[in-house]
Simulated scan of single mutants.
Amino acid sequence: MLPEAMIALAAAGGTAVVQAAGTDAWTGFRQQVARWFGRGNAQRESAELERLDQTETALEAAGADQAERVRLRQETFWEAWFIALLEGLNDEEREQAAAELGTLLGQHAQQGGVSAGQGGIAAGRDVNVKAEQGSIAAAVLHGGANIGTPTQPDPSQG
């Protein structure tokens, strides 16, 4: 079983693939991910490019009513795929691959991806924060936020 940090890295990889698909960053990121999975094997790299293209196609083809489900399915698939590769390596190779993946994801984040520090959460989409049964929920927001039901506009505003 992989250490928790590597599982988190695989989850971040899955999220990054889905978030990058169809964006300006996709072409370069897609190539880097395929190269990471290929591990020097041109045939495997080519197969990964096809798999990445299938993800992009699935995300683009999803209707509005299915987009979230397709996105989650693709993130889960890629997380599992990253985990499977890492689990198939010996300890030394796994450490090297994890470091390479961390670097790849860090470069992607610097080029417009989403990232967070240790203990944080970052999202390129909506995040819901709620507290139940007397617990406390907290969030730091950088950008706009909508909380609860929006206020009704003044009649003079139309």
Results as ranks from 00 to 15, higher is better:
36 W>L: 00
124 G>Y: 08
124 G>F: 07
33 V>R: 07
153 P>Q: 09
109 A>T: 02
82 F>G: 08
24 D>V: 11
61 A>R: 05
26 W>N: 04
135 S>E: 03
5 A>G: 05
69 R>Y: 15
121 I>S: 05
123 A>M: 10
100 E>N: 03
80 A>P: 08
36 W>R: 01
78 W>I: 07
114 V>S: 08
23 T>Q: 15
78 W>C: 05
66 Q>T: 14
119 G>W: 06
37 F>W: 11
143 G>E: 02
11 A>N: 14
118 Q>H: 04
22 G>K: 11
157 Q>L: 11
127 V>S: 03
22 G>P: 09
108 H>E: 12
101 L>I: 04
58 A>E: 09
48 E>T: 12
73 R>K: 14
97 A>M: 01
99 A>L: 13
117 G>E: 04
147 I>F: 07
34 A>C: 04
7 I>K: 14
67 A>G: 09
53 D>I: 06
153 P>R: 08
134 G>Q: 10
24 D>R: 12
140 V>C: 02
61 A>N: 03
95 E>A: 12
65 D>C: 04
23 T>N: 12
115 S>F: 14
98 A>N: 08
96 Q>F: 10
111 Q>I: 00
144 G>I: 04
133 Q>C: 09
44 R>I: 15
45 E>Q: 08
11 A>Y: 11
12 A>K: 00
85 L>M: 15
82 F>C: 09
106 G>F: 06
55 T>V: 02
57 T>E: 01
4 E>S: 12
151 T>S: 06
50 E>L: 11
10 A>Y: 00
27 T>W: 06
103 T>C: 01
75 E>Y: 07
97 A>G: 00
88 G>L: 05
103 T>F: 02
94 R>T: 06
96 Q>Y: 10
29 F>T: 04
2 L>A: 12
91 D>G: 09
20 A>I: 05
79 E>L: 11
127 V>W: 08
135 S>P: 02
4 E>K: 14
27 T>R: 10
48 E>G: 01
100 E>W: 06
115 S>T: 15
60 E>W: 08
126 D>L: 07
11 A>P: 10
